[in-house]
Design a protein around this nucleic acid. Structure first.
Length: 722
DNA sequence: CCCGGTAAACTTTTT
DNA sequence: GTTTACCGGG
């Protein structure tokens, strides 16, 4: 068959691709060609005359969305916009924001901004000083929103947190509206609200999107499900694709129920099961299936494969994290010798902090690697500062952003001045930005601050004018020039100066590139970047070993997979072991991790691990024991008599007194030696006793701040002339 | 108001 | 080990 759309499809895949009208649910097991089915189905619809604008396809990550759009084009289709739930809602909301009393260019707050807003709210309400953290309040509110609950549903009165949440709940909503801001959850909730309160508008959306497709359906939460029901009537042309065994986002409100009960909610649903795995060896698949079979809440599904048996899963139980890391680095080195490409190797872990020891081992062996996730480009301080300036230009109501930068770079407008100005502005019905631009309100602050405010207002006005005439990059240039921010961020005298300069340059290029490709201006740019995540910036520096959390690994596949930290209390995580549901979700995570591997899977655990500064004894994970015996084999480490790492604690635990002596002797100008970083010179010393620390400049030119008690510095000599 | 120093908390997982 | 928040002197 030469038709590219039907080429090489098995019977079930073809059924899903060719299905006509009416609800369709595709239960796609791991590695069963899900993406292929989705993209071909879209391509097929387009070929049969459906216009791209009639299709609403939603995924959970920008990466998945981009990949799908790309593959549809490869099949000869036109460009179709495939969006994440959040970006689709943001776009729709922008068009109809006025209906909800929001400005068109509302600001999207990330978790950090949200917590800033809550912190300021707690202060205003006099609820600070209770030791409730804004982030705890923020995440509780988020959880409630995602599950369509209200504070009354919390176990009432039992905790300070519950009480604070109850008191902040409504004020937070009011404040966000006043700020012209929405958090991630609001994007979904407010769009749902829009559809429900404006039936005519809802009808327009239903008429506009006659074909709806949702990927990773097992990860939808209640709000997303309700949105779908608003957009797609019971007999609508809605196609959902997912795998209940890969539902791993329960913590942010995802309900597997949505996929388990889809057939009940959409009567007459056609169900297609993709049960042929094309990805992994038979051994890997059998191991994964055996583990997941321990879950009780499952939809019946059984994966088959015609692939070869393959190598057993290697199990390695290390003495500690250092041995675990070095053994993995060692084995990767071996794989590279067998002509395996670096980017076909991936290392997965349950939490980010497990990556540290691995990172060190790879660095030592000179193996190139890349860590996905963690701090994203747009979460860096200097970038957030500049974006805050830009946000204020587009949305003058955004006090959180204005407050962030009103004294950055420091210009003599301290906290008390800001508070005064805020209050005065508030009484006059003005936002902070407006108060900054209102000279009559400046009298209440000291002369120095007054002058600074006038200058700041001038810079903002100038940047605003530049936005209109030159677009987003003009605005950024005006801010950079008016505030001297580049100089401020790159003269702190620490080693990050260079990185910050590069980041700012990159932001400039990014903004400029956006202006060249888009007509949406600064507002469009800000909305665009608000929804980007750390996964979305693919830097192409040649092939590298990929390191990421198991969550981030979903949807990806690699020839060789390393799964580290299979310790009870780490994976499954300590917080999950209390409940059956928690354990089942962790087990699904395990299933996701194993099924990423095409050829080999290597699992490791450690007998002891440093957690929160103290070394704990670890038991192997229960999932480790659930792996079938006939699929596993103990890994023979090359390290027959493993050499204890110098930094593994023995240096000072065996003989702490001499170490302490040495720390007392550390002083500025001394040449010292660190076990990991090598030789360096002490630049400054601070603190005393147990928290005494020193800034040391090492031979690689990097200055590091070290806690003397832990660092185990040794004095080399008195090379004073550095 | 700013900066340096000191102490404490911190580690799920993400749009 | 790292990062951030708070406190007190200049």
């Amino acid at each position: 068959m030469s038709d590219p759309i039907q080429k090489d499809l098995n019977e079930q895949q073809a059924a899903a691709v060719m299905h006509g009208r009416g609800p369709l649910m595709v239960l796609a097991g791991a590695g069963s060609g899900k993406t292929r089915v989705v993209t071909r189905r879209i391509a097929r619809l387009l070929r049969e005359g459906v216009r791209g604008s009639e299709i609403l396809a939603m995924t959970f990550t920008n990466k998945a969305a981009g990949e799908m759009a790309h593959r549809v084009q490869d099949l000869g289709g036109p460009f179709v916009r495939i969006a994440t739930f959040h970006s689709a809602c943001a776009r729709f909301l922008r068009a109809d924001a006025a209906l909800l009393g929001y400005p068109e260019h509302f600001t999207i707050y990330d978790t950090y901004d949200r917590d800033s807003a809550i912190r300021s709210l707690l202060e205003d309400l006099g609820l600070d000083r209770l030791k409730v953290k804004p982030s705890a309040v923020g995440s509780t509110i988020s959880r409630l929103k995602n599950t369509c609950m209200s504070p009354q549903d919390l176990a009432t009165g039992s905790s300070d947190l519950a009480r604070v949440v109850e008191q902040v709940w409504q004020p937070y909503r009011d404040r966000m509206k006043q700020l012209g801001a929405m958090d991630f959850d609001d994007l979904l909730l407010n769009f749902l609200k829009l559809l429900r309160e404006h039936p005519d508008t809802a009808e327009q959306y239903r008429a506009r999107f006659s074909w709806i497709l949702v990927d990773e359906f097992q990860d939808t939460n209640r709000v997303q499900y309700d949105l779908l029901r608003e957009l797609a009537p019971k007999d609508g042309n809605v196609c959902v694709v997912g795998d209940p065994d890969q539902s791993i986002y329960g913590f942010r409100g995802a309900e597997i129920r949505n996929i388990l009960d889809f057939e009940d909610d959409y009567p007459g649903t056609t169900v297609v099961r993709l049960e042929q795995n094309y990805r992994s060896t038979a051994v890997i698949l059998r191991a994964a299936e055996t583990v997941i079979a321990n879950n009780k809440q499952r939809k019946h599904k059984r994966l088959r494969t015609d692939n070869e048996e393959g190598q057993p899963l290697y199990l390695f139980r290390a003495a500690g994290a250092a041995e675990e890391a070095q053994t993995i680095a060692d084995r990767i080195h071996g794989l590279l010798g067998e002509d395996v490409s670096l980017d076909e190797i991936a290392i997965f872990y349950r939490t980010h902090w497990l990556s540290r020891s691995i990172e060190q081992a790879l660095k030592d062996k000179g193996i190139p690697y890349e860590i996905l996730g963690g701090l994203s480009f747009f979460e860096r301080r200097e970038i957030k500062d500049l974006l805050a300036y830009l946000r204020v230009l587009v949305n003058p109501l955004d006090d959180v952003s204005m407050e962030r930068v009103i004294n950055v770079p420091t210009r003599g407008i301290g906290k008390s001045s800001v508070d005064k100005l805020k209050r005065a502005g508030h009484e006059a019905g003005m936002s902070l930005r407006e108060a900054v631009g209102e000279p009559s309100l400046h009298a209440i602050v000291p002369p120095k601050a007054r002058k600074a405010l006038q200058q700041l207002a001038a810079v903002l006005d100038k940047a605003q004018a530049a936005t209109a005439s030159l677009g987003a990059h003009g605005a950024l240039a005006a801010i950079l020039e008016g505030t001297d921010y580049l100089n401020h961020a790159t003269s702190l005298g620490d080693p990050e100066d260079i990185a910050r300069e590069e980041n700012i340059q990159e932001l400039v290029s990014d903004v400029t590139a956006f202006d060249e490709k888009n007509e949406e201006g600064l507002g469009g740019y800000l909305q665009h970047v608000s929804l980007l995540t750390s996964q979305d910036r693919a830097q192409d520096d040649g092939p590298r070993v990929q390191m990421m959390t198991v969550h981030a690994a979903k949807g990806l596949e690699f020839d060789h997979v390393f799964l580290v930290g299979l310790d009870e209390g780490v994976f499954p995580s300590m917080r999950s072991v209390d409940t059956e549901d928690g354990i089942e979700e962790e087990r699904r995570l395990m299933y996701v991790a194993i099924t990423r591997g095409r050829r080999t899977v290597f699992c490791s655990s450690a007998k002891e691990r440093m957690i929160n500064g103290q070394t704990d004894r670890m038991q192997p994970s229960r999932f480790w024991k659930e792996l079938p015996k006939d699929c596993v084999q103990a890994y023979e480490s090359k390290w027959h008599s493993f050499e204890q790492e110098p930094d593994s604690g023995e240096a000072w635990s065996v003989d702490p007194d001499p170490g302490l002596e040495a720390t007392v002797a550390i002083q500025r100008g001394l040449r010292v030696r660190h076990d990991l970083f090598g030789n360096g010179v002490v630049r400054s010393v601070s603190g005393r006793g147990g928290s005494m620390r020193a800034v040391v400049r090492f031979l690689d030119g990097v200055e590091r701040e070290l806690i003397l008690e832990y660092a185990g510095l040794k004095v080399v000599d008195h090379g004073a002339d550095w």
